[in-house]
Nucleic acid binder design. Structure first.
Lengths: 243, 243
DNA sequence: CGAAAGGTTGACCAAGATCAAAGTGAGTGG
DNA sequence: CCACTCACTTTGATCTTGGTCAACCTTTCG
């Protein structure tokens, strides 16, 4: 659920005077199966949305950041679980109020529609990653994704700002693994491999520093896509990337 | 882009007098990178949406059927390729006309928003499949998905109608492989495995018959999901499934 | 300070990929 | 109408990536 506040305050304003709630890490905000009667907006912190199969296999579907909505669905019950990764604060309004807002304000509804589209397009990227990329590539993409979101969330600092290269990893290795469709051991080994290649350094279990951004983007694979039938001309290796 | 006509004709009607076009199998309707200035609705046949990386890896993102929209995006250029799998007919209207329709008709916009939500939820299922399921499970889910869409598309026959058990596979093994995040050889072997287990029989290279629907659903894994922390009570093995 | 949870590493294994060759069948031209 | 061809599919042998199992290490927190 991307986008910066400037283009979105059409709705976010609806939460300005809404009640809010603090979540502790690991706290479940929405359990799969619960009735979908509220809509939440993240004021701060990180949440995680996941789906768990009967046999216990879990897929983390996305990590959620400030100004992302939580709890939206077309159905009247949630199919997913949303829980806090870091301490987080969420504001909430009743679903009817949210729906009424959209119904009475066509501009808001339009903006909202575009947000949902952007979420959908992010999910299509995720499908590409899971279907086509290797473990190492997925992890590289993931680190760039976290960096991207920190930039988005902490205000649009210059992309070259060296502070952006310190990437916090507040989630566990298992959370990362379940997001990337891997096992936690494979995630560990992939971190080591990125480190051995000099692209990152592990500054602790829950933080890494990006040492070679261009190199990391290289491993992630250029994030733009071509049409079949016109195979793009080869490019200098570390060009492109869109984060 | 699911749903049946009954709940959707709010829009579909917008295409009733629109010009339409016949597509031959393999014909590209929309190439990645083209400007997004038209919206299409499928009148008949099957299309396929995919994304191809610079290095040639391709992910098929979805197969599209009657009454699905094609060419919708939040951006002004497509990021995906849409091509015909079978002979197909699509109606088209200019994007501005489509947008104007939504802008002037709040009920239509709301309906459309719900459609996009449903597409998003389908994509989340796909993420779960790619991240967590084995090759055999993915193929079983895929067959059920095709069966489901044929039922949706050819009118709501009884789910038990034996005719539904003949599933056509108009796409190549490679298309299936790229949809499931596998190689074509693995798809072949997985078909054989389903056949050896007596769940299907291959009635030709582009058709299979489902012999044991419950068993196939069993392999697919129950398609409903639980909350973590309350592992659902065990069920009779071949229950559930929501296709 | 000690326990517990999470993380890393290593040895081994297996699902699926890759490489190679042989079938199969739909369409085409003789 | 038949045989040839080409594209697609299947099957087999082997290899590799990532999974599994198990031990050890390192933070964190009580």
């Amino acid at each position: 659920m991307p986008g910066n506040r400037a283009t979105q305050d059409l709705f976010l304003e609806a939460f300005d005077h809404a009640p809010s709630r603090e979540l502790a890490p690991g706290e479940v905000l929405i359990a799969a199966g619960a009735p979908a009667d509220q809509v939440f907006n993240i004021l701060g912190g990180m949440l995680m949305m996941s789906r768990t199969g009967r046999d216990g296999r879990r897929q983390v579907l996305s990590f959620l950041f400030r100004d992302n909505f939580v709890g939206l669905t077309a159905t009247d019950h949630y199919h997913f679980t949303d829980e806090a990764v870091t301490p987080a604060r969420v504001a909430w309004i009743p679903r009817e109020a949210f729906d009424a807002r959209l119904a009475s304000d066509p501009a808001a509804e339009r903006t909202f529609l575009n947000m949902v589209f952007r979420v959908l397009e992010d999910m299509l990227d995720e499908v590409y990653s899971l279907g086509q990329r290797t473990a190492l590539e997925r992890l590289a993409v993931f680190l760039l994704y976290l960096r991207h979101w920190r930039r988005q969330t902490e205000g649009p600092a210059d992309d070259a700002d060296p502070a952006l290269n310190d990437v916090a990893l507040p989630m566990t290795r298992e959370d990362i693994a379940d997001f990337l469709g891997l096992q936690k051991e494979t995630v560990s080994r992939s971190f080591r491999q990125l480190e051995e290649r000099g692209l990152i350094s592990r500054t602790g279990p829950s933080a890494v520093r990006v040492l070679d951004l261009a190199g990391l983007r290289d491993v992630a694979g250029t994030l733009d896509f071509t049409s079949p039938g016109r195979p793009a001309a080869a490019r200098t290796a570390s060009a492109a990337g869109r984060a």
